[in-house]
Write a protein that binds this DNA or RNA. Structure first.
Lengths: 145, 145
DNA sequence: GTTCCACTTCAAGACGACTTGAGGTCAAGG
DNA sequence: CCTTGACCTCAAGTCGTCTTGAAGTGGAAC
């Protein structure tokens, strides 16, 4: 397969595939002239990358995770535990947001449960984890007609 | 209070406070010469910002969220629902990671449940949400002796 | 054998949230 | 009055994940 085929089937722009190669995450089976050639296996690899990425691994970490000796199970376990903590935090946050949204007090200053949340934040700030948003997948350019 | 006092009490570097001001999220009560002066209220404001930030709002969104007319409850509700979806996804992911870590198959290719996960990713890639990691809070410079 | 155009490389740009550095200001203490 | 140094501003740099653009290459169709 040419890179455009992989791009289409994986739903990723070719530029991303080149970038992943540069980072050592994927590799073409060879070249046809200049052109990278791939077989089906790369699709599975990309799927795997997609999954662990959505679990919060950075590309560098994924490089280590998928190192020579197969999947690093320790990293997986560690990340699972991290996810557990994250999930707990997010659930609490979600409840607080709902409560704040429903609270009839005209300003958040008058809502006792929100007060408590703020006090907790004042005591030991979170700041250890951020959750950026989707960013809307601005896909464009470099497309096979 | 001088900015260094706020910084210390909020656990944020002064540069961040200036940046938040530039983004319209906080404001000093006035100036003493050049120096920004703050009262206690800014600490509560910063705590609020910290909370909603950890719930996934970007600084720009926080600007809108905390607009003139108080907290925007619609935004809060929408974000709570988003968090719900996120939590569900993360929980599934966590289970998959645990399973993959525990799976005795020598390579992930031979683990049926991981296979299924990959197939799902192949069919409809996630790619709609990423979860960057802590980044280690590289705090330094600009400190009161 | 010439043309076409999907591919190639490499450098630079984009975005969000800050940080860093150079050079300047000014209130307070000696 | 002079020095000190915490503060100030503004421009530029950083980090991760890509995207974009310019300029070049070469397989395949004609």
């Amino acid at each position: 397969m040419d890179i455009a085929d992989v791009a289409q089937r994986a739903g990723l722009p070719a530029s991303t595939l080149r970038y992943y190669e540069e980072k050592g995450l994927i590799a073409p089976t060879g070249r046809h002239g200049l052109r990278r050639q791939y077989d089906e296996a790369v699709l599975e690899r990309l799927a795997l990358i997609g999954v662990v990425r959505s679990a919060g691994f950075s590309l560098d970490e994924i490089g280590r995770l998928l190192g020579e000796r197969g999947l690093d199970r320790e990293m997986l376990t560690a990340r699972a535990e991290e996810l557990d903590r994250t999930i707990t935090e997010l659930a609490a946050l979600r409840d607080s947001l709902r409560h704040a949204a429903a609270c009839p007090a005209p300003t958040h200053r008058e809502c006792p449960s929100f007060q408590q949340l703020l006090r907790a934040e004042l005591d030991h700030p979170v700041r250890t984890r951020t959750f950026p948003r989707p960013a809307g997948i601005a896909r464009s350019g470099e497309r096979r007609s």
